[in-house]
């Protein structure tokens, strides 16, 4: 378990370069580390600190604030069942109990085979499609207990492996700014003038 790989270091430097201050890249790099290892390791946090100019304690201070960062292994699939009002009004608590029974684990824990972690999540912005859940941040809408059983079957058999990447990967598309098109980030301390287009004339 590990510091960032060579490929990820390259990616990390590209990300850092987009911000006027390197420390702004802390959260994106924590995501990168979690994508690499499935959770955020101490070694990765030290490494991120070196890259952005922070201590490992500062990086951990930031990381530990955010729900999505895990500091010990979780299942390959993280099921987050929403428990906030709109979902609760339409059976989210029943769904959670059903999931606990079906998986034989309590909310907040992982199945013995390390496949599935079950958590209650807060409002996931799909309130009209209640009750909803996410598997590794991919939505499932208006989920019935039968839907949930089928989902768990599919996750266990590997039928959804192509659609849902293992825990750690969130977006599978990255921004990439072409060298000849990017303006480039500037430290605010080095900026003394307003932008060129504020000269009182049309830009085109």
């Amino acid at each position: 378990m590990a510091r960032l790989s060579e490929d990820n270091i390259r990616l990390a430097r590209e990300i850092i370069g987009r911000y006027p201050k390197p420390r702004s890249a802390t959260i994106p790099l924590l995501h990168l580390a979690q994508e690499q290892d499935g959770f955020v390791t101490n070694e990765a946090m030290s490494h991120i600190g070196e890259l952005v100019g922070a201590t490992s304690a500062e990086v951990y201070g930031t990381a530990s604030f955010y729900e999505m960062f895990k500091f010990e292994p979780v299942g390959k699939f993280l099921i987050n069942i929403c428990g906030t009002m709109s979902c609760a009004l339409l059976g989210a608590e029943e769904l959670m109990h059903h999931a606990e029974g079906r998986l034989g684990i309590k909310m907040g824990s992982t199945t013995a085979d390390g496949k599935i972690t079950l958590e209650r999540a807060e409002c996931q912005a799909a309130c009209t499609e209640a009750p909803c859940l996410q598997v590794n941040y991919r939505y499932r809408y208006r989920v019935t207990p039968q839907d949930l059983d089928a989902l768990i079957d599919d996750l266990s058999s590997g039928a959804l492996d192509a659609e849902i990447p293992a825990h750690g990967t969130v977006a599978t598309v990255r921004q990439s700014i072409p060298a000849d098109r990017g303006v480039g980030a500037v430290d605010p301390d080095d900026v003394t003038e307003g932008p060129a287009w504020l000269d009182g004339k049309a830009a085109l």
């Binding site: 911000y19 955010y66 990017g182 303006v183 932008p195 000269d199 085109l204």
Partner: peptide, 20 residues
């Protein structure tokens, strides 16, 4: 990015994402 539509207006938009 640089010189949008060939004008003097330039802007980088950086995609950033949170963590819950």
């Amino acid at each position: 990015g640089k010189n949008i539509l060939g004008s003097k207006f330039s802007l980088d938009i950086v995609l950033h994402w949170g963590a819950g």
